[in-house]
Design a protein around this nucleic acid. Sequence first.
DNA 1: ATAACTTTTTAAATTTTTTTAATAAGTAAC
DNA 2: GTTACTTATTAAAAAAATTTAAAAAGTTAT
Lengths: 415, 415
Amino acid sequence: MELKVKNVKSAELKNMIIKRLYFDKALSCADMSELFDKSVPSISKAVNELMDEGFVVEQGYAPSSGGRRPLMYSLRHEAIYILTVAMDQLSTRIQIVDILNNPVAKTAITELKLLNNPSALQTLIDHINDYIFSTGIPVDKIAGIGIGMPGFINSTEGYNYTYLDSGDESLTSVITRETGVPTFIDNDSSLIALAEQKFGIAKARKDVMVINLGWGIGLGMIINGEIYRGHNGFAGEFSHIPLSEDGALCTCGKRGCLEAEASMLVVAEKAIQGIKKGHISSLKNIDINQSKMVGDAIMEAANNGDQFAIELLSDAGYKIGKALAILIHIMNPASIVLSGRGAVVGKILLAPIQQALNKYCIPRLANSTELLISDLGFNAELIGAAVLVMENFDKEIKNHLITTNQSSMEKTTKN
Amino acid sequence: MELKVKNVKSAELKNMIIKRLYFDKALSCADMSELFDKSVPSISKAVNELMDEGFVVEQGYAPSSGGRRPLMYSLRHEAIYILTVAMDQLSTRIQIVDILNNPVAKTAITELKLLNNPSALQTLIDHINDYIFSTGIPVDKIAGIGIGMPGFINSTEGYNYTYLDSGDESLTSVITRETGVPTFIDNDSSLIALAEQKFGIAKARKDVMVINLGWGIGLGMIINGEIYRGHNGFAGEFSHIPLSEDGALCTCGKRGCLEAEASMLVVAEKAIQGIKKGHISSLKNIDINQSKMVGDAIMEAANNGDQFAIELLSDAGYKIGKALAILIHIMNPASIVLSGRGAVVGKILLAPIQQALNKYCIPRLANSTELLISDLGFNAELIGAAVLVMENFDKEIKNHLITTNQSSMEKTTKN
DNA sequence: ATAACTTTTTAAATTTTTTTAATAAGTAAC
DNA sequence: GTTACTTATTAAAAAAATTTAAAAAGTTAT
């Protein structure tokens, strides 16, 4: 006996509508007809079914553009929630957001060391389950779990080859099984890029390079409007491109990597050296035993006008600019976005970066690339994780939401 | 009175079939059903219509895979020809090929200087028209003209911002008007990449970087199975990425560009210097006043085991390898193909390139990229030009072919 | 204020596509 | 050499999508 789902194409259209409404908030039938190249009656039918299923609601009339006012449809807020997770080497943030990306509960922040920590995966799962329980939101209202994390990640297959070893089974499969919610993972920088392109400063742009300025230097690439992950999912390893011939030794074992020359960690290191040598600066009272805190302190000091801090950042900015020149030559992007932790000093970095671009770029290329500073800030990765879930919104997720929802999908049995 | 073409979607399917048959040579209805996610009857209907229109013929039965043998369909050879053009700074090749990319007449090679030559465009048009006339192939059997050329090119709009100035009107529009055949242009390196991915060593691979080793160093990118051209069509400007801090002066005005360090022209230049200094080599009797001929001579000498030539090429190879390391970090491609003129010394370049990759690449990335040498050689650009035309095969082209063909499309008049 | 024109939605008719079933043509095991 | 099982094509029936037409709800110019 074989089970067969009917109306596959119709279900596809409905998923496309849900997905689109997540990004565009509200659309009329006419809008969607245009968007999906489907007739209005087809759209109308799908929308009505989605209303019956509880996913879509009428939102009211939009202003007329010269004729009858269009009836706008949007997603029902209570139908879909998304659990988002942003991990770095040391700490993990967990959050549940609604369909407007607004948090519905306080973000949970926990210490979770990724390196050499065999129990990290179980800890993560426990934290997620605890968080879901604490919010009281039923599991079947959560469309999916999106997780951003560092490491070499194969997003399609759901593996992280660097951290959170899950054995033969994929990481996403383990978390899906243990939480009961479809799970998706991706590289932190890719998710930041996704956030910037969907809801940030690079909104709707097709070819965007997002630089994740943090303790390393990540690169998330949007190519033809989609995240580009490369053949094995390792694209965007910007941190370790060889920049100078005999530069500083990098954690990767090679010399002259961009990360070893210009990351916030290196800036912090240089600041500590400088302070030890007696550099006059508002930083001189900082605890120099914790590079990461020094990093934050430098950025704050720079924004407050501290000359020494600005000098250090400018130096890093120039090197980043040189690397960006290479990136521009290869990719000819519409925009480059400075995002991640370092975005707060974006304005200070802008001048030296532009200077490097002028020196190392063919003018025609430099001029056709806009340099932007993120306004999403620290939230980018969490928003990106939500986008990741909704980009993968398909039959499976809808079934997960619908199983304990009101109606069930039409199925026929083939005899 | 408004004219409206019916069966738009059906026409689309038919174009998809023609396109696919160009790439796959022969397919059964079942194959196409799978490929296009359409029912067999839909495919069958479209194929029968295409046979009536004279585009498709039955090709015979393929071996059975356990059941009834599939009837294979292929394109009718006499229905579609493609005119391909490959231009470089000094000379232009023109050719007409059939649907199997086989030339149907001798390739025409003419001297045509691109730089500072206001009459270049008219000369090109004249040559194309003369060539078509000389072959006796009727214009309405030629699906399109594909042209590969150097310069900053916007393939979608059909402009070349560097050469062949066509004023306000697009270059493709001028040539289409003057020849009566739909025309498409693209960057030479992009077309070489297209050829390698469709009919060359990187066949069917999705993420491929093709290096066009010639007088410059070009880069054609296949991303997600499609040519990537960047935001303005300027992507792949690999020649001018800053490689060394205070390197040789480049024609672009900057220092340390890859092109200025490792192109065949530079190798030739170095050879001339070496010979003048009395280097012992089989090259010593070459005419040192023509760098380009020296370039060819060096490649030949290297392939014959000349130590000095090999040394020069190895040096260039190592620098190319360093640049490829950067490319691999950013793109994580499945394959890198060495193509263009320099492909003939690919085997000699391989070792120093690999050496550089070992030094400058994270092992995981280097290991997941295969380094290939083109077997299409000098023909790649012409084949790519044909692919460019067929990739753009759409309603317009089909109409062009069909106007003076046997049947005409069904049209209805809206009252 | 009214006529003329837009835009959106709904319902009925038509077209297109897919599903189903039947037929044809082959392979492989016994 | 049957029999059971695959695979491919064709034709008729069923389902789905689009086109067409009409109605509803506005805007704008006179």
